[in-house]
């Protein structure tokens, strides 16, 4: 069933714990129909932000809304937003099915949904076993089943890929894509870019409680450096200097501002035969790391890819 998702809007969110500011004037928007990754190192304020959005934490200032409403104002929270939080724990002596049945009763969701979602996350057989005997991967699936219980327009999942085995990761990735294709708003958090890189369409990166980047993956890609060398290195440097930033290296020249093809063309035009030509892209993970550690200031491309 195609669902029309609702946007998540975080505006000027602040959460102060004593002297520390866990979330510091954070604003971003999450659109329906896409998988959005919410990234940042541990302690960056991801969980605090998500818990504020879900009405579990009272923000010091600002707002976090779903379709313009605070979580507590939603008429039917579980059928609007499905959430699975990392610390979302289960009583070990209850079965997965009993846990879901309790949630279904509390939310007024028909009891038949319990078996439907258990089937959908692949826990149909394990559902009647006690959660105490579940693996981390099974708990993640149970958390996801709980999030899906009300067939919600919005899904908020904290570290859903954490602890899954390779098969489970592949399953979760395709599952999240399907959910977004159904038109839902899907927000997943992670502290590793590589974990969600293949899953997300959009990124929100925070560091020290502040927004570090919002946009698509392509916008995050770092500058590429072309390494080039020629027996007549000085002449090559002179030929490239008007077109790009050129710096001498022990084994050649580092060129920023041109791609390899353009560097080759300039050298050819100047009649300089090359002895080496290579492209080094700084990896997404490097850019991500430099963003969140603050060693590298990249301007957040607001609304890129939209």
């Amino acid at each position: 069933m195609a669902r029309r998702g609702l946007p998540i809007e975080v505006r000027g969110l602040i959460k102060q714990y004593g002297a520390t500011r866990a979330v510091d004037d954070l604003s971003f928007t999450v659109e329906p129909g896409k998988v959005t990754g919410f990234l940042g190192p541990n302690g960056a304020g991801k969980t605090t932000t998500l818990r504020s959005l879900l009405g579990l934490i009272r923000p010091t200032a600002g707002s976090a809304t779903i379709g313009g409403q605070r979580y507590a104002e939603l008429d039917s929270p579980l059928t609007t937003v499905g959430a699975a939080l990392e610390a979302n724990s289960f009583h070990p002596s209850r079965s997965g099915r009993a846990h879901l049945a309790i949630q279904a009763k509390a939310a007024g969701v028909p009891a038949a949904r319990v078996d439907e979602v258990l089937l959908r996350v692949g826990l149909a057989e394990a559902g009647s076993r006690k959660v105490g005997g579940y693996s981390l991967g099974m708990r993640q699936r149970l958390g996801l089943a709980g999030a899906l219980l009300g067939d919600p327009a919005v899904l908020v999942l904290d570290e859903p890929i954490n602890g899954l085995d390779p098969e489970g990761i592949r399953w979760m990735r395709s599952f999240l894509k399907v959910l977004a294709e159904e038109g839902r708003t899907v927000l997943i958090s992670s502290h590793l870019l590589s974990e969600v890189q293949q899953t997300v369409d959009e990124l929100v990166i925070i560091a020290k409680g502040r927004l570090a980047y919002q946009g698509d993956l392509a916008g995050l890609a770092g500058e590429t450096t072309v390494t080039v060398d020629a027996p007549r290195r000085a002449e090559l440097q002179a030929a490239l200097a008007p077109h790009a930033t050129v710096q001498p290296l022990p084994n050649g020249l580092a060129v920023v501002g041109l791609d390899a093809e353009q560097v080759g063309a300039h050298a050819f035009a100047a009649g300089i035969p090359l002895s080496a030509l290579a492209t080094t892209a700084s990896g997404l993970e490097d850019v991500f790391l430099s963003l969140v550690t603050g060693e590298h200031t990249t301007t957040a491309t607001e609304g890129a890819g939209r």
Partner: peptide, 18 residues
Amino acid sequence: TAEFRHGTLTPTFLATPS
């Protein structure tokens, strides 16, 4: 106390924010 012990207040308050 069982809710605090096993962290189940989170799902409880998600289902019933009041």
